[in-house]
Design a protein around this nucleic acid. Sequence first.
DNA 1: GTAATTTTGTGCTGTATAACATATCTTTGC
DNA 2: GCAAAGATATGTTATACAGCACAAAATTAC
Lengths: 244, 244
Amino acid sequence: MCCITYLCSKKMGKKDKNITECLSKMNDLVNTLNEKQKDVLSQAITVHQYKKNETVYHYGETPKYMFCLLSGKIKVYKEGIGGRNQIVRVAKPVEYLGYRAYFANGKFITAASTLEPSCVVKIPLTVIKELILENAELGWFFIKTLCQELGRSDQRTVNLTQKHIRGRLAESLLYLKERYGVEADGYTLSIYLSREDLANLSNMTTSNAIRTLSLFATDKLILVDGRKIKIIDEERLRQISRLG
Amino acid sequence: MCCITYLCSKKMGKKDKNITECLSKMNDLVNTLNEKQKDVLSQAITVHQYKKNETVYHYGETPKYMFCLLSGKIKVYKEGIGGRNQIVRVAKPVEYLGYRAYFANGKFITAASTLEPSCVVKIPLTVIKELILENAELGWFFIKTLCQELGRSDQRTVNLTQKHIRGRLAESLLYLKERYGVEADGYTLSIYLSREDLANLSNMTTSNAIRTLSLFATDKLILVDGRKIKIIDEERLRQISRLG
DNA sequence: GTAATTTTGTGCTGTATAACATATCTTTGC
DNA sequence: GCAAAGATATGTTATACAGCACAAAATTAC
């Protein structure tokens, strides 16, 4: 990880162009702020570039920063029993990470790492908390986000515990499509996960992810070429996901 | 369900004693409000008495009220595949229910029903939303609560998917102790769940909940008498839960 | 360019747990 | 008080999936 703006983040006068650019990308959050608050925020943030497979935060750490993913992809995961990781969610631009544990007064119970080279803004959580306490609209932004995530998390629990392997993998593929979309051809998932990550997202062993994936391929539901996955029969995939 | 205050909720002048009493129980929320806001709230709420096993809200309904559990116990559950319900959490006094779906702009994806006779305050969600938007401290209250719940939900997913039956049941028993505490003897769980509910909380079949429970009993970890459960070796139970 | 390492793929075996069947015990309704 | 319905208990069978072993392919390292 390297900090792009360490040279200029303390400079005076008109705001650094780079920082201004970042703020404009974070408009869903920034738009809730008044000018003074925007200023506070712009003084507090730093921009960082992560390589692929770099850790953004570790399990057990005390949260200090909120992360805003500007470009790239990040997985948030829990270290399960016997090294079996569980991917809890995958983030896309522009989304926010790392605030849950702080707001709940705890340490990180998940870890996060990049799935691709990613650009991330770091915002001290003390600053965010202050802004929330003086700006109800910003608070509302977080409430909405948290409510959506909590709903998804509860949904996920039932999916992972009650569906069979085929249903779980189908569900994951649809989730990835919904989250990251597809490439120009309209079919190829715009994310290339390893079979292991796919397994960790679907709560199964790597062997079974591979097996079930090729099963889907022979059933002509998908087309697999290395890590590229084309979804060709979404309707049937959705059916498999529904029925478990 | 019957509304206790329908006779007086529209009365003028000094506040209804009953309502005032309720508000004082909801102090964690009410303390964030100024006098005018407290007034708005007291005008908007109604108090209701539920019998055992009554539904508080249904799956698929459009949320209109937030529920505040003043006394009793409520289970929040998802209807899973093939009628297999999943209890996602159990509420105790004084906790709030039914706001997640509304804030996320959706319908209920869970249902809630009473485990015991319960007293519940209903607050129109429009009122709560307005109050949040004009009171950052109230917003912060919800943010903290949501962050804690989201953490628990993620934790739960790993527990249910990666632990074996014994670990899952041990976890559930400890969860119930932590939530509802024990009776005067210091051992008996202060909640009497059916074996089915215990199974739905632990993601297993009723048969297996029964079997594993009596297994724990022969191992002298617990003492079972009908629906009464005494936890006698918490340390070992904790160990079983940890190891999966 | 070759070796080493990681990722992907496939088959076999064992086991945890669901599913089913049936019996007993408990609660509820009249 | 008795019938009916529901909850609890226990044994048996079936199966989905983990776990392991091993081979091939792809990526990385030097």
